[in-house]
C-alpha cells in the first residue's frame, strides 16, 4: 500500500506548486510528446536533465522515485525477454548455441525503459505538486473550447474530481475491511484455493456495498445543496497565470524544439 504514496499530492511550497494548473498540464503534455520523439540518446539526455531539474525544483526525493519504480522492473524484464526473442535486426551482440541476441533488441528495451521512467516521473511531478481539485479545474478549462461542440467539460471535470476524491477513501475502506476480516480469521496469503476465493469475496462485497451507498449519499447531498447538471455556474477560485508559468512554458517549448530538431 505504500507505493500509493507516489503520485499523491504533497503539500509543499515550491516553484512547481505555484504554477497555474492549466499551464502545468499543458507543459506536461508537451514533455510527454518530446519523450516520444525519436531523438536518440542525446535527446533523452537533455529531457532527463530537464526532468531532474524539475524534480529538484519540486523537492521530490530521488529515493521516492526509485522505490516506486520497483514494481515496473517485472514488466520491463518481461518486455526485455519478448524483445530479445522477437527482434532480429541490427548486429549480433551475443550468440550461444544458436541463441542470438541482436543489438536492436537491446536498444529497443532500453528505449522503452527510459520512456516509461520519464513518463512516470513527469506525471508524478504534476500530481505531487497539484491539488486534485486544481487539477480538475485545469482540465475543465483546457476542455472548455470543446463545449461548443457539445462536450460536457464541466461534468467530466466533476466526475474526475469526485473519482480522485474517493481514491484515498477507498484505500482506507479497503484497509479497514481487510483488518476486520483478518480479525475473523481471513488470511489472504495462506489457505486453499477455495478459502482464498472466499477471502477475496469477503473483501470485495463489502467494498462494493459501501461504494454504492457512498455514491447514493453523495448524489443526495449534492442535490440537497442544489446541484443541477449543466447549470451555468461561477467559480470561487480564479486561475491566473504568472511570470513563473511563462518561464516554465518557454523552457518546455525550447526543450521540445531542441528535441524535434534532434530527431529530424
Amino acid at each position: 500500500m505504500n507505493n500509493i504514496a507516489l503520485g499523491r499530492y504533497l503539500p509543499l511550497n515550491t516553484y512547481t506548486h505555484h504554477l497555474d494548473p492549466r499551464y502545468k498540464i499543458l507543459g506536461m503534455l508537451l514533455l510527454m510528446v518530446s519523450v516520444f520523439l525519436p531523438a536518440g540518446f542525446i535527446g533523452y539526455g537533455i529531457i532527463g536533465a530537464f526532468v531532474l531539474l524539475a524534480l529538484v525544483l519540486t523537492k521530490i526525493k530521488l529515493k521516492m522515485i526509485v522505490k516506486s519504480m520497483k514494481p515496473l522492473l517485472f514488466m520491463l524484464s518481461f518486455l526485455m525477454v519478448i524483445n530479445l526473442l522477437v527482434i532480429r535486426t541490427g548486429y549480433v551482440v551475443f550468440s550461444f548455441n544458436g541463441f542470438t541476441i541482436y543489438s536492436d533488441a537491446l536498444f529497443q528495451t532500453l528505449y522503452i525503459a527510459i520512456r516509461l521512467t520519464l513518463m512516470i516521473i513527469i506525471t508524478t511531478l504534476l500530481t505531487v505538486s497539484t491539488k486534485p481539485l486544481d487539477l480538475t479545474l485545469g482540465i475543465e478549462d483546457l476542455l472548455s473550447p470543446f463545449k461548443k461542440v457539445g462536450f460536457p467539460a464541466h461534468e467530466v471535470a466533476m466526475m474526475i474530481s469526485i473519482a480522485l476524491r474517493f481514491i484515498p477513501t477507498l484505500i482506507d475502506e479497503t484497509n479497514r475491511i481487510m483488518k476486520a476480516q483478518a480479525s475473523r480469521g481471513v488470511d489472504l496469503k495462506e489457505g486453499t484455493f477455495k478459502e482464498k476465493i472466499m477471502a477475496i469475496l469477503s473483501l470485495i462485497v463489502p467494498l462494493f456495498v459501501s461504494s454504492f451507498q457512498r455514491a447514493e449519499e453523495l448524489a443526495d447531498a449534492m442535490e440537497a445543496r442544489g446541484y443541477i447538471v449543466a447549470a451555468p455556474r461561477t467559480r470561487y477560485k480564479q486561475l491566473k497565470p504568472t511570470y513563473r508559468d511563462a518561464l516554465m512554458m518557454v523552457a518546455v517549448l525550447a526543450l521540445l524544439g531542441t528535441v524535434i530538431w534532434l530527431s529530424l
Binding site: I177, A180, S183, R184, G185, D187, V205, P206, V209, S210
Partner: peptide
C-alpha cells in the same frame, strides 16, 4: 501463525457492520 492469536483475541471494530458480506 497470527490466526491462533486471532482465534483467542476477538476484535470487534468501530462500525463493524460494513464487514458483512
Amino acid at each position: 501463525e497470527l490466526k491462533s492469536l486471532r482465534k483467542r483475541v476477538g476484535l470487534v471494530f468501530q462500525f463493524p457492520e460494513y464487514q458483512l458480506f
